[in-house]
Nucleic acid binder design. Structure first.
Length: 279
DNA sequence: CGGCATGTTGCGCA
DNA sequence: TTGCGCAACATGCC
């Protein structure tokens, strides 16, 4: 699940559960998720501290504690934080747990669940490079089109690959990039340096819309999340906008769905050809 | 059984 | 040195 809207959703829930609370217990035995740290360092870094704030940049979460310690959490492909009571049983694929007490409230317990274990959990005294090096976050103030246009123009790659570069836009994953480009009517194979300023603006607005839409879905009861994608995962089906059959290609090693009928491909002038290149 | 998956990293090769 | 393609990571689902 986790792309920007999912991580933002988790951030809000973690904030509600953790902010101002004191960590009474913190455990993880998962050496892969903790790498290169030890389970002891995880416990030692967190227990006894108070949670000041839960931040997010792109797909990264950061719990900021009262003494300046931070817990960085990346959800990878299948990670999620669940809020439970402290007496709740261990969940399937539970990899870490943090218990928190707040005033007279019930003991709350956050369970990190991650079947594939592609996520990360890192205790640090400072911001980590993975956090520092992230590009602009598209959520808070929207996408700065000039910055995005410059990043796209400086590369000669498929536009979709650049959008998914976390140093360009933090938090855009395969679904958002696919859906955002469909909304912008831009072919994901378009060369990033061949796009017009108008295209870049449409892409920015398309991504923002896709983010808002996905986040809105998260506000429903958890069992009722029904993500409705226009093209993602729908190759072979008709495009909801123009009716053409949705195509599937691989870009940067990732499955990519798009509509040849209404998504326009841009290509540098000198290399423009009659037949579509690369087929 | 094979294929595929919302993410990231690291390796070999050009 | 840089960039690119692709396998790997680990598990579950169809």
């Amino acid at each position: 699940m986790p792309e920007l809207p999912d991580v933002e959703f988790v951030r809000r829930r973690l904030t509600a559960a953790l902010r101002g609370g004191t960590i009474t217990s913190a455990r993880s035995k998962d050496l892969r998720l903790l790498r290169p740290q030890s389970p002891a360092a995880f416990t030692r870094g967190l227990v006894g501290r108070t949670v000041r704030e839960v931040r997010r940049r792109g797909k990264w979460l950061c719990l900021e504690l009262d003494d300046g310690t931070r817990l960085f959490s990346h959800l990878g492909m299948t990670g999620w934080w669940h809020e439970r009571g402290c007496d709740a049983p261990e969940e399937r694929s539970e990899r870490a747990r943090i218990d928190v007490r707040r005033g007279k409230g019930r003991c709350r317990s956050l369970r990190y669940v991650d079947s594939r274990r592609f996520g990360r959990l890192m205790v640090a005294r400072d911001d980590i490079p993975e956090w520092r090096e992230l590009g602009q976050d598209p959520f808070a103030k929207g996408i700065h089109v000039g910055t995005l246009a410059a990043a796209l123009a400086s590369r000669r790659r498929a536009v979709k690959e650049v959008l998914m570069d976390q140093m360009v836009l933090a938090g855009i994953g395969n679904i958002l990039a696919t859906e955002g480009l469909w909304r912008a009517r831009v072919d994901p194979r378009s060369r990033s340096d061949a796009l017009s300023r108008a295209d870049v603006t449409k892409i920015a607005r398309g991504l923002e819309k896709a983010i808002r839409r996905q986040l809105a879905t998260r506000k429903k009861p958890e069992g009722e999340w029904q993500d409705v994608f226009a093209v993602y995962g729908r190759s072979g089906e008709p495009c909801p906008r123009c009716g053409s059959t949705i195509a599937r290609v691989v870009i940067g090693g990732r499955a990519t769905a798009f509509c040849k009928g209404c998504q326009v491909r841009s290509w540098p002038r000198a290399r423009q050809r009659e037949s579509t290149p690369g087929q």
